[in-house]
Amino acid sequence: MSNTTLISILIMSMLINNVVLSQFLGICPFLGVSKKVDTASGMGAAVIFVITLASIICGLIYHFILHPLGLDYLNTIVFILVIASLVQFVEMFLKKAMPALYKALGVYLPLITTNCAVLGAVLLNVQNEYSVIQGIVNGIATSVGFAISIIILAGLREKMQYNRIPKAVQGFPFTMFTASLMAIAFCGFSGLK
């Protein structure tokens, strides 16, 4: 495993295969929590935090427990339980140890449990047969990609808040149109391959 592969994983997961705009994972928070840049960056930070931790823990569990014992078919159940309890623990830990960080992230943590980006990133690590280190890099890159796209969308929505929009397009469809244009822009990154 050389440094080049790590860097290519980083670029691939962050920009080319952007988790939201080309893999459609984590669409729910992407559309739901992108009204203001403040909340969007809070959500992005919380996702970075959780995905990084989840890919470390799930990577270790997979490589040292599930795979050696031939229990690969339990992946989904184990990972989702690990993520759900991880989110709970992180919430409790932050509440006690780092109240400031808890105040910043606390709102978003419970929303992340069923964010498919977390489970998706962990499952992709297994599917692509990444080692633990590669998995962690992939997790970080995926979540940074998520943060980038949600913050851009929130910025766009803030700017366009006072625009005149036909009634039928208001709200959800309008956000989808914006996301579509963003996805076209992100298609350009596939030239980086």
Partner: peptide, 22 residues
């Protein structure tokens, strides 16, 4: 069939539905 098309088609479908309801 690429990523942007997915957003676009769903947006149009929901817009049409919203228009009918309106």
């Amino acid at each position: 069939v690429m990523a942007p098309g997915a957003f676009l088609v769903l947006a149009i479908m929901i817009t049409i539905r919203a228009h009918i309801i309106n």
